[in-house]
């Protein structure tokens, strides 16, 4: 075998000073972040590694995996309520998001003020988790599925409005131009030129959002906003973990089925 007679090592990689400095800054920032995180966070380790934890573990975990079938009818009824909440909320959001989507689309309103303020309100809504909205609605109108529906309806506008505006911005404007050239008015253009182009995507996104909303409405009951979460809250307080196990099982099955149907429908639409 040919071995080099003398060891010639490859030349050292030349790195620009800018890159070296950048890498060091990143490293220092990361280190600082972790030092801050781990020195500051208050975790009571003696509570976590205690006999109580062990007792909880041996009680909670086996019960979770042996669901209480007696509460299955109740759990299914409440899961039905959850699905209904998600449906009502998503449908309301899907309609309310349409004007937002149009306002935020650059090719519909040629005004920066309208575009940005619509985009900004959509972003603002998206910053809040739905359950936080639910907390406020529960405080306003009392514990009820209605509070959950409102939370979902408001919370979903953010994402749907944003996606709608992207769909609108990507449509074929030549169709609109030619309708305009034919002397169509704004309303006619909307119904013959724009709506037919965006409907399939709008629908597909609304169905996708329904998937997300089903997931989030399962937990709204934890703070009194209806659905299967209420059962989980009560069972946890009574430490009936086998009932929680039943609720969990139903959530997993129903969410999986909904995801499956939703992706099937969306594939058919687009």
């Amino acid at each position: 075998m040919a071995q080099p007679e003398t060891l010639v090592l490859p030349p050292k990689k030349k790195r620009s000073t800018k890159k070296v400095v950048r890498n060091w800054i990143i490293a220092v920032l990361l280190l600082a972040m972790y030092v801050w995180t781990f020195s500051d966070i208050g975790i009571n380790w003696s509570q976590i590694f205690s006999e109580r934890t062990l007792n909880n573990m041996t009680r909670v975990v086996p019960q979770l995996f042996s669901p209480e079938w007696a509460v299955a009818p109740d759990a299914m009824r409440l899961m039905g309520e959850t699905l209904a909440m998600a449906y009502t909320g998503t449908l309301m959001a899907a309609l309310l998001a349409v004007p937002f989507g149009f306002f935020a689309a650059k090719n519909m309103f040629n005004s920066r003020l309208i575009n940005t303020s619509a985009k900004w309100s959509l972003d603002a809504i998206r910053a809040f988790p739905e359950i936080m909205l639910a907390l406020i609605f529960v405080a306003a109108i009392g514990p009820s599925p209605f509070a959950g529906v409102l939370a979902i309806a408001v919370g979903s506008i953010g994402m749907l409005g944003k996606l709608y505006s992207e769909v609108i911005e990507s449509i074929d404007m030549q169709v609109v131009d030619s309708l305009e050239a034919n002397g169509a008015n704004k309303i006619q253009i909307l119904f013959y030129g724009i709506i037919p182009q965006v409907i399939p995507e709008f629908l597909s996104y609304a169905i996708y959002r329904y998937e997300i909303d089903v997931r989030s409405s399962t937990i709204l009951g934890l703070i009194g906003a209806g659905g299967i979460g209420m059962m989980i809250q009560i069972s946890t307080m009574n430490r009936n973990w086998d009932e929680v196990g039943m609720a969990l099982l139903i959530i997993i099955i129903v969410v999986t089925v909904i995801d499956y149907f939703s992706s099937y429908l969306r594939k058919r639409i687009v």
């Binding site: 040919a2 071995q3 080099p4 010639v8 090592l9 490859p10 030349p11 030349k14």
Partner: peptide, 18 residues
């Protein structure tokens, strides 16, 4: 490392090592 570099030299591409 030296072997790897030597072989790059043999196929005349050592200037692209990095």
């Amino acid at each position: 490392k030296a072997l790897a570099y030597h072989n790059l030299q043999r196929v005349n591409i050592s200037e692209k090592v990095h």
